[in-house]
Design a protein around this nucleic acid. Structure first.
Lengths: 108, 108
DNA sequence: TACACTTGCAACCAATCGGTTTCATAAGCA
DNA sequence: TGCTTATGAAACCGATTGGTTGCAAGTGTA
């Protein structure tokens, strides 16, 4: 199935997983302990995260360590960029307005 | 129903709506013309966007203009901030490594 | 080899999602 | 006052989601 990073971060449990493995690599079992749901449910989330290349895996014996593919997170940042431009422009305009007000005040 | 901004941007049609109304306020009818689905489907998306306060509405006669609440988009930026820190740190570390390599080269 | 542990996958299920059609309401216009 | 236009809400539907249980495969260990 075609996975999308925006769909991946839509679920709060997956965002929590992302936050955890961003700090340090973790096994599915260790992750599952942090949540109320079963290990299999966490495993499903990890599969979704894997499908959209948000995580990296490293096998160590019979354990598999999952860690965050931070580069992929930049995709969200890139998407956000167009909107950041807008709010920065608005902020600049606001500053301009404030500066004008201040100037007028000083002229009085 | 409790709405979440991450859930709101998960759908590609909603992201397209966001992109359109970021540029200029639009009516549901005008928006629906841009998509293959019905006006009612677009209306549903607008309701979801409204529920999580991502859009602002302005009634003009019998038309309702929808525009983007850009401030709300900052929430995503704030969430992303923790990860931006990570990739910027990694980038700094990479720069450091490159600088060291360069230095060693020059010492030869 | 036998057993315990870690993991992924398949089957199933209730809830939600994104879409449709139908209908009700409100505003402009002849 | 009718008629058209713009919109939202409700009812319905198939697909998807997030969860479960059960099972199979691979790895470490006594």
């Amino acid at each position: 199935m075609r996975r999308d990073i925006f769909q991946a971060i839509a679920d709060p449990t997956r965002r929590a997983i992302i936050a955890l493995i961003a700090v340090q690599a973790m096994t599915p079992n260790a992750l599952a302990e942090k949540f109320d749901s079963t290990r299999q449910a966490v495993s499903k989330h990890l599969r979704i995260l894997t499908e959209c290349e948000l995580v990296r895996t490293e096998q160590k014996g019979r354990e598999i360590y999952y860690s965050l593919e931070i580069e992929k997170m930049k995709e969200i940042d890139e998407w956000l960029e167009q909107y950041r431009k807008i709010w920065e422009t608005r902020f600049d305009q606001l500053e301009e307005v404030l500066a004008t007000i201040k100037k007028k005040k000083e002229e009085k």
